[in-house]
Amino acid sequence: MPQTVVITGASAGIGRATARLYGKRGADVVLLARGRAGLDVAAKEIEALGGRALVQVTDTADAGQVEAAADAAEQAFGPIDVWINCAFTSVFAPFDEITADEYERVTKVTYLGFVNGTRAALKRMLPRDRGTIVQVGSALGERAIPLQSAYCGAKHAINGFTSSLRTELLHRGSNVHVTVAQMPAVNTPQFSWVRSRLPKHPQPVPPIYQPEVAARGVVHAADHPRRKQYYIGASTLATILANRLVPALLDRYLARTGFDSQQTDLKPPSGESNLFEPVDRPEGTDHGAHGVFDDSAHARSFEATLARHPAAVASALALGAGAAATAGAALRRRVRAGAA
Rank of each mutant, 00 (worst) to 15 (best):
M1N: 09
Q3R: 15
V6L: 13
I7N: 05
S11N: 11
G13F: 10
T18W: 07
A19F: 08
Y22M: 04
R25G: 03
G26M: 11
A27L: 06
V30S: 09
L31P: 10
L32H: 06
R34H: 05
R36P: 07
A37P: 11
A37E: 08
E45S: 12
E47R: 10
L49M: 12
G50D: 06
R52D: 11
A53G: 10
V55K: 03
V55Y: 02
T58I: 04
T60K: 03
A63S: 15
A63C: 10
G64F: 07
Q65D: 09
V66A: 03
A70E: 04
D71Y: 04
A73P: 04
A73F: 02
A76Q: 14
V82E: 03
N85M: 12
S90C: 08
S90W: 02
V91S: 01
V91E: 02
F92A: 09
A93R: 02
P94V: 14
T99V: 00
A100F: 12
Y103G: 15
R105V: 03
T107N: 06
K108D: 12
V109Q: 08
V109M: 10
Y111G: 00
L112Q: 15
N116S: 06
G117H: 11
R119S: 13
R119D: 13
L122G: 10
R124L: 11
R124T: 08
T132N: 00
V134I: 12
V134E: 01
Q135D: 07
Q135L: 05
Q135V: 09
G137N: 09
G137T: 06
E142W: 07
R143Q: 14
I145A: 14
P146R: 04
G160T: 08
T162P: 02
S164L: 10
R166D: 04
R172P: 08
S174G: 05
V176Y: 02
H177W: 10
A181G: 05
Q182I: 08
M183H: 03
N187L: 13
T188R: 05
T188S: 05
W193L: 15
R197A: 05
R197D: 04
P204A: 11
V205D: 13
P206F: 01
I208P: 00
E212I: 11
R216A: 09
A222D: 04
D223Q: 08
Q229M: 03
Y231E: 12
Y231K: 05
I232Y: 08
A234E: 10
T236L: 03
A238V: 14
T239E: 05
I240S: 06
V246Q: 15
V246I: 13
V246A: 15
V246H: 14
P247M: 01
L250E: 07
D251F: 01
D251C: 01
T257H: 09
F259Y: 12
S261L: 11
Q263V: 07
P268V: 02
S273H: 06
L275C: 05
F276Y: 12
P282C: 14
G284R: 06
H287P: 10
G288E: 13
V292F: 13
S296K: 14
A297V: 08
H298S: 13
H298R: 15
S301T: 05
F302M: 01
T305D: 13
R308E: 15
R308A: 13
A311S: 10
A312E: 03
V313E: 00
A318R: 10
G320Y: 00
G320A: 10
A321D: 04
A323P: 02
G328I: 08
L331F: 09
R332S: 13
R336M: 13
